[in-house]
Amino acid sequence: MSSSKDETQQLIQFVGTKLRELRKEQKLSLEELAAKTGVSKLTLGNIERGETNPTLGMMWKITNGLSLPLMALLKPENNINIVRAGQGPQLSGNRQEWVIEPLFSDIRGSLEMYRAFLKPHCKYVPEAHHPGSIEIATVMSGEVQITIGESSYTLNKYDSIQFVASEKHTYTNLEDEQAVLHLAINYK
C-alpha cells in the first residue's frame, strides 16, 4: 500500500472519529444529524465508521448543519503547525477539478485557511458556506474568474477578493495551466 493511500485512509478515519465526537457533543442521533445536514443517515454512519471518503461538498453540508467550520472535521488542535505544500491531506470535488489543502484554523474555529488548485479551463461551484461567513481569495498563479451572485471578477496573480461566502459563488480557471489560490474563510 502506498504512502498516499495510507494518508487518505488515516484522514478518512480521523474525519469519521471527529464527526462522531462532534455529533455526540451536540447530543444528536444519526437521524437528527441527517435531518440537519441533508446527508443520509446511512452515509453519515459510513463516514463515522471510516467506510467512505466523503466529498468536499458533503463535508460542507455536514459542518453547515452542525454550525461548525470545515476544519472542525479535518485538523487536530496543536499550538504550532507546519503544512508543507503537497504533503498534507487533499480534498476534492467530485471530478478532481478543484482540490484543496487545509492549512490552518484559529483556536476558536472562526478563521480557516486553505490552498486550492483548479485544473485548466475548469469551474468549481462550492456549497454555500455558513450564513454571514466571509471568504478572501488570493490568486497565487494563473488567471481566475470569480462569479459572486450575478457579477464576475477576473483576478490575476496576487490579486485578492473578499466577499460574503454564503452567497452563491463560482471559481473558473481561464488558463491552460493549473491555477493556485490561497483562501481564508472567516465565520461570524
Rank of each mutant, 00 (worst) to 15 (best):
A184G: 12
G50Q: 13
Q178N: 13
S3V: 05
A116Y: 04
I100Y: 04
E32L: 03
R95N: 10
K36A: 14
Q145A: 11
E48P: 07
D176M: 12
A34E: 06
G57P: 03
M1Q: 10
S40R: 06
Q178I: 13
I185K: 08
S151D: 12
M58W: 01
R23W: 08
P76N: 14
P102Y: 01
V15L: 05
V99K: 14
E48V: 12
I134K: 11
L111G: 00
R23Y: 05
G88L: 06
I136T: 13
I161E: 11
G149Y: 07
L42Q: 15
N79Q: 10
S166H: 08
W98P: 04
L155W: 15
Y114W: 09
E7Y: 02
N186T: 13
Y171Q: 05
V180I: 10
L111A: 07
Y114L: 06
N53F: 03
Y187F: 09
L33C: 05
N186F: 05
E112H: 11
F163C: 08
E97N: 09
A179V: 10
G149L: 07
G86Q: 10
A34P: 11
Y124P: 08
S67R: 11
N173S: 12
Q13F: 12
L68E: 01
M71E: 02
G38V: 09
E143R: 15
K27F: 03
N81E: 05
K119R: 13
T55F: 00
T63P: 06
H169T: 14
V99P: 01
I62Y: 07
S92K: 07
F163P: 10
E101V: 06
E97Y: 09
